[in-house]
Amino acid sequence: MREVFLPRTLDELWDLLHRRPEAAIYAGGTDVLVKLRAGLITASGLICLERIQELKGVRDQGDEVYIGAATTHRTLLADPVIQEHFPILIQALNVLGSPPIRNMGTIGGNLVTASPAGDTLPPLYVLDAEVEVRWGDGAKRLPLSQFILGPGKTSLGPGQLLTGVRLRKSADYNVHHFEKVGQRKALAIAIVSLAAVLQVSDSGRIEKARLAWGSVGPTVIRSVEVESALEGRIISRDTLTKAAALAQTAVSPIDDIRAGEAYRRTVAGNLLLRLINYAR
């Protein structure tokens, strides 16, 4: 038998983390319960974050939006602030898992799991998200790209908790594009995904581009080179094809049961061609 703790406040949580440092932490459990069943987590205790209200919900703070780490994907999808300011995140959430997984899983869980295939990661990278990490008597704020270190690895130290995600509102982008390539349309783990936010002028020129790829490297891949290859140019098949070639060298995918390295690399580039749909 395994003990399950259900703290209701952060103070209760800090106390628990102190007493049971080995315990595994979860919110929706959509990753942790799978690992438990497979015997990959052997901790004698589980701490559930689901009932800590401070960790839940979306707060509009003017220039910034704060998302509690234990906010479910379903809640985010229904949130008018997220819908208005971060449509690319909505697009990614819409293809994350399945309705039951979106009902249970949380944004914090998706980040702490730190899978390169995590569906919310590429959009949060292009949005330059920051995360808030807290512990008993301290807190810090850091870019998401510094929080996630590798597959399944984060910079969280003992006794620390990811408590929230901060997103800056920006009017810069008028194209918000997310595409996930999976083995089916739901309940699919990304083979490749691409998040792209662009500022495209009335004449069709890309003024600004931010791109991030999922599942083609140990973490989400960004490429300044590809972004520069797009910026200042008119959206055209030629521009996108050249950028695609650069993207194919920027990514470092692996072979696994879902797809081969070569396929991932090819498609990582090919997905840029989809931006032709936004040509003026």
């Binding site: 399945s98 083995q183 089916r184 349309k185 739901a186 309940l187 699919a188 783990i189 049961i257 879902r258």
Partner: peptide, 23 residues
């Protein structure tokens, strides 16, 4: 369904992909 030297590589419903209602 993939088998390598007699060992199943797609050993569960996370790797063996059956259609969902969406498909």
């Amino acid at each position: 369904f993939r088998v390598t030297d007699g060992l199943i590589q797609t050993s569960d419903l996370a790797t063996y992909i059956i259609p969902t209602a969406m498909d």
